[in-house]
């Protein structure tokens, strides 16, 4: 199993946990400060992506996995983003 040899390249779980906690606290703080919709949304989405990446790369070991698993993880993400963007002119911009 490559997890045993590659775990050195992963962040220690406690460190990941610390970052996840800090980012969650950051999110809870952001919504309590009046920044405007755009800024709040960007910060929240950015923070959520960072947290998701931490879990996927370090807890799910994607950082040390081979190309096949990376491709399997990446493909649906790209499709979902493309799909939602394609829906914006039709559904999102309809009021």
């Amino acid at each position: 199993m490559n997890a045993a040899t590659g775990t050195a390249r992963l962040m220690r779980p406690a460190v990941v946990y610390g970052w996840l906690a800090v980012l969650t606290a950051f999110e809870l703080a952001v919504v309590r400060v009046p920044l405007g919709r755009g800024a709040t949304a960007s910060l929240l989405v950015g923070s959520a992506l960072a947290k998701a990446a931490l879990v996927v790369l370090h807890f799910m070991h994607l950082r040390i996995e081979g190309r096949i698993l990376r491709a399997i993880a990446l493909l649906p993400l790209l499709l979902v983003v493309a799909f939602v963007v394609a829906l914006i002119p039709d559904i999102g911009a309809r009021r």
Partner: peptide, 12 residues
Amino acid sequence: GQPLLYQHLFWG
């Protein structure tokens, strides 16, 4: 609610 959203999801 938007009926057209279903059509996008279905044909997707």
